[in-house]
Design a protein around this nucleic acid. Structure first.
Lengths: 115, 115
DNA sequence: GATTTATATAAGTATATTGTTATATGCTTA
DNA sequence: TAAGCATATAACAATATACTTATATAAATC
C-alpha cells in the first residue's frame, strides 16, 4: 500500500475519533457493510442517541457518509476522504466483525416491515 | 509489512493515546531519536510537567520505555510492545520530524554541561 | 552535605467527552 | 391528516483529559 503522509493535526484528529471502542467498531463494521442506526443498535449496549452522536462525529470528520433511503439513513465509509488510505490501513489491524454483522443480520431490523 | 490483528480494546487505547497532537509528535520524534524531557521541551510550547505527564501515559501503555543515564531519563519507542507493528504503520504516515529534531539539536540541552 | 539540574508527582482547574432522557424532525402508511 | 417508526437534536450529568503551579525526588557537582 502506498505511503501517504498526512498533516499531523488531521492525523491526530482521526486517531482520536478511532480511539474510542464504539466508533472503532462502527468503522470496522462499515468497512464490511453499510448500516443504519437501528442495525448498529443490535451490536452495542447503548441508547440510540448515543450511536447517532458517534456517527455524527464520524460524519463531521468526513470518515463516513450518509445516504437516506426512505425512513432509513444508511451510513458507509466515505471513500472520498483525504485520509481514506490511512484509515484503511488502521482498520486492517482491527479484528473481523463477522460476529457483529451476524448479530445485525440475525435480527435484521430493517426487514421488519418487509423492505 | 505483515498484517497483525490487534484486540479491539487495545487498539482503541493506543489510537486514543496517539490521537493527541503532542503525543503523536513525541512518538514521531522518538521514532527517529531517543530524547529526554528537556529536549522535548524545546519542541513544545508547554510546561515540563505537561511533557512528563504525556510521557507517563505513553510509558504506562508500553509505547515508550525509559532509560536513566545519570541526571537524564532517555525515552525511546518500546520495540517490545505487542502492538509495535501497528504503531509503526501509523507513524509511517506522520510527517517527518526533521525540523523538530533540528530544534532539539540546535539548542542541545543535554550538552550544556558537556556530557 | 548544600546547591543545582532534570524529572516526577500532587493538587487544582477548565474544558472535552460520552453517556443519559426528553423531545423534535422526517418519512411512510393507514 | 393522524399514527408510527427511524433518526436527530437538545439539555444535562458524570467522568476524563490536558493543562497549570507548587513541591518532591534523584543524580551531579561544588
Amino acid at each position: 500500500m502506498q505511503k501517504v503522509v498526512v498533516e499531523i493535526e488531521k492525523a491526530a484528529h482521526v486517531l482520536k475519533l478511532l480511539g474510542d471502542k464504539t466508533r472503532l467498531t462502527i468503522m470496522a463494521i462499515l468497512k464490511k457493510r453499510e448500516c443504519c442506526v437501528c442495525e448498529l443498535l443490535e451490536v452495542f449496549d447503548m441508547s440510540q442517541p448515543a450511536i447517532s452522536q458517534h456517527l455524527r462525529k464520524l460524519k463531521d470528520a468526513g470518515l463516513v457518509k450518509e445516504d437516506r433511503r426512505g425512513q432509513w439513513i444508511y451510513y458507509s465509509l466515505n471513500l472520498e476522504n483525504e485520509l481514506y488510505d490511512f484509515i484503511q490501513e488502521i482498520l486492517q489491524h482491527i479484528p473481523d466483525q463477522t460476529e457483529n454483522i451476524r448479530k445485525i443480520e440475525e435480527t435484521n431490523p430493517t426487514l421488519r416491515c418487509g423492505c
